[in-house]
Amino acid sequence: MSLLEINDLNKRFGGLHAVNSVSFAVNQGDIKAVIGPNGAGKTTLFNLICGALPADSGSVLFNGGQILGYRPFQIATTGISRTFQNIKMFPGMTALENVMVGLHTKSRSGFWSGMLHLPFTRHEEKKVRRRALELLELLDISAYADVEAASLAFGQQRAVEFARALASDPTLLLLDEPAAGLNIYETAEVARLITKIQQQGITVLLVEHDMSLVMDISDEIVVLSFGEHIAEGTPSEIQHNKEVIQIYLGE
C-alpha cells in the first residue's frame, strides 16, 4: 500500500486552475520528487498536502486516512513533517532550541506543569534536550548546537531544519525546495542528508527546481505543468520523456 495517496486534487485561484485533477501516490520508503517549470503549481500542491491551503476538491490519504481539511498543526501530529523553501528558523533561538521545538508533539508538559516546574517536567525537559542533541549529531551539526540558528550559514540552517523536522519522528517528510538558495557544494550536502534520512526508513516527498538534485536522489518523479500531471516515472524515464523535454526546453 502506498503511504500517501493523492486523488483528483483541485485548487483554483479565481480563473487560475493552479492544481488541476492531480493524482499520484508515494510508496513507503521512497524518495519522490515533484518537478515542473515556474508556475506549474508545485508549491500550491505542497501547501494543500500540509494543510496550509484549503483544497477545492479531491482527497489526500495518509496511511489510508483522509487528512485533507486538517490544520497544519494537526497534520504534524499524524506523522508528517515539513520544511520551508525559505528556511524558517525560530529567531533568537539556538540550533538546539530549534530542534527542541520540533519535539513539541513528543512531549506533554503544559501551562500548569510549566508554571509549577513539576518534577516530571524537569525530567521531560532533560529527555527533550538529549534527543535534540542526538538529532543534531545525526545530521553532523552538533558543533553548532549553542549557536543562534538564524546566524548559521544557509547550508547549516538547512541541516538544522531537517533535524527539527525529524524530531517529531515522522513517517513522511515533505521538503519544499530543499536546495533553494544553496550553492552546488551545499546542494550536494543536502542530497547526502536526504539519502541519509531515507536510510532511517523515512519516506520523502520533495518539490524541487534543481534538476541535478532531483535526478540524483529520487526513486520516482512526478512532472507538473500548468497545474496538470504530465508524466510520472523513474529519473531515466523522465529524462527521455518527449513531453517533459518539450515543456522544459520549449521546443
Binding site: C50, A52, R71, P72, F73, A76, T77, S81, R82, F84, K88, M89, F90, P91, G92, M93, E97, M100, V101, G102, H104, T105, S107, R108, S109, G110, F111, S113, G114, M115, L116, H117, T121, E124, E125, V128, R164, A167, S168
Partner: peptide, 29 residues
C-alpha cells in the same frame, strides 16, 4: 510562575510562535 513558564516547553512554543508562526504550526503547536 512566569519565569518557570517561559523556561518550559510552553515558553519555547511561545517564542517559536512569536518568531515564525507558520513554522511553529508545522511543528504541531
Amino acid at each position: 510562575l512566569l519565569l518557570n513558564l517561559i523556561d518550559s516547553r510552553v515558553g519555547r512554543a511561545l517564542r517559536a510562535i512569536h518568531g515564525a508562526e507558520d513554522a511553529a504550526d508545522a511543528m504541531g503547536i
